[in-house]
């Protein structure tokens, strides 16, 4: 029986990375026996959620070593499981840790690893989108296990109501793999909705001129329920806003009902992160900006002026309450 595995990142309170649930949902349609692998504190507690989304089996270890040390212990444990159970296909979400783990596993198993998949077409075939999503490339994979990194937000997570059998992972991680140690964490979940879950995304680019002008987007977001502020890499690299704001190829994928791009040119690496938006509004002073090619409503003008007017307009329509 063909085995399809989904590697799921978990949090210590038993939470599961949404992208893993999205991938499980899609993987249910591929045929084959579906399992999830979860490593680190919270893994066993996550089995319920993983089962609800289609995993028949959850291989789990709550060992701290997987959270304390980057990539090597998890790749080691996965390799151990692969040798024991011989899955055909292992799916990972394109996340920081998963990407490193998948890369290492590819070396251990000698299997091909496909990155940036946006769709899964079968047990040995996946699709990726290039040129900002304009061209779809289908790739056939050989060997076993085949490894695929899937972009978050490629599918919608939907529970199927199942329950998983929890199989504890019993693997010894040798000292020589306990090298890259996390010594500090500086991570703060932003207030308000998470960018990737927001119904309205207000994104700013270099055209906003300076860091301080992001407060216009913050103010607008405070007037709209379920709105979050995002940014391009150009302004993240410039230090205007934290990396957590970045939308695009190396940032987050968003799929809001409305996406407003203020002072954003529309580079392909940005577009891949937001082209799933239902409606796109673009404000740019250059009428040739590529972002207009995919905007439902484009405004040629100064983003700062338009945002100020929009804040007043929304405030007057909603009475100021979000």
């Amino acid at each position: 029986m063909a085995g399809v595995w989904v590697y799921a990142e978990v949090t210590s309170d038993g939470g599961v990375d949404t992208a893993a649930l999205e991938i499980l949902t899609k993987a249910r349609t591929l045929g084959g026996e579906l399992a999830a692998v979860a490593l680190g504190p919270g893994a066993s507690a996550a089995a319920g959620r993983l089962g609800e989304h289609g995993a028949a089996t959850v291989y789990a270890s709550d060992d701290e070593v997987f959270a304390d040390y980057v990539a090597q212990p998890a790749a080691h444990a996965l390799h151990h499981l692969v040798e024991k159970h011989a899955p055909e296909l292992i799916l990972f979400a394109t996340n920081y840790d998963s990407r490193d783990i998948a890369g290492r596993l590819s070396a251990k198993t000698g299997s091909p690893l496909m990155s940036n998949a946006t769709d899964l077409l079968g047990l040995d075939r996946a699709r990726t989108a290039v040129a900002g999503g304009a061209t779809l490339v289908d790739v056939a994979l050989e060997g076993s296990p085949r490894l695929v990194l899937v972009r978050p937000k490629s599918f919608k997570a939907e529970p199927s109501g199942g329950a998983a059998e929890l199989v504890p992972v019993d693997v010894d991680v040798p000292g020589e793999l306990r090298l890259a140690k996390r010594v500090e964490r500086h991570e703060a979940a932003a207030s308000g909705p998470r960018l990737e879950d927001a119904g309205v995304v207000l994104a700013g680019g270099r055209g906003l001129g300076e860091a301080g002008n992001f407060k216009l987007l913050d103010e607008l977001a405070s007037l709209i329920p379920n709105a979050a502020v995002g940014a391009t890499r150009a302004v993240v690299d410039a230090g205007w806003v934290p990396y957590a704001y970045q939308i695009g190829q190396t940032g987050k994928a968003v799929k809001p009902d409305v996406y407003i791009a203020a002072g954003i040119s529309g580079a392909t690496q940005h577009i891949v992160g937001m082209k799933g938006a239902k409606r796109v509004v673009a404000i740019n002073k250059d009428d040739d900006a590529p972002i207009f090619q995919m905007a439902d409503f484009g405004v040629v003008g100064d983003a700062l002026k338009v945002l100020e007017q929009l804040i007043d307009e929304v405030r007057s329509r909603t009475g100021g309450a979000p």
Binding site: V70, N95, Y96, A180, K181, R182, V183, E184, R185, H186, E187, A188, A189, A190, P242, Y243, A244, K252
Partner: peptide, 9 residues
């Protein structure tokens, strides 16, 4: 990291 950074050595 998605929500900030970690120090790793």
């Amino acid at each position: 990291s998605p929500d900030g950074y970690q120090v790793v050595e």
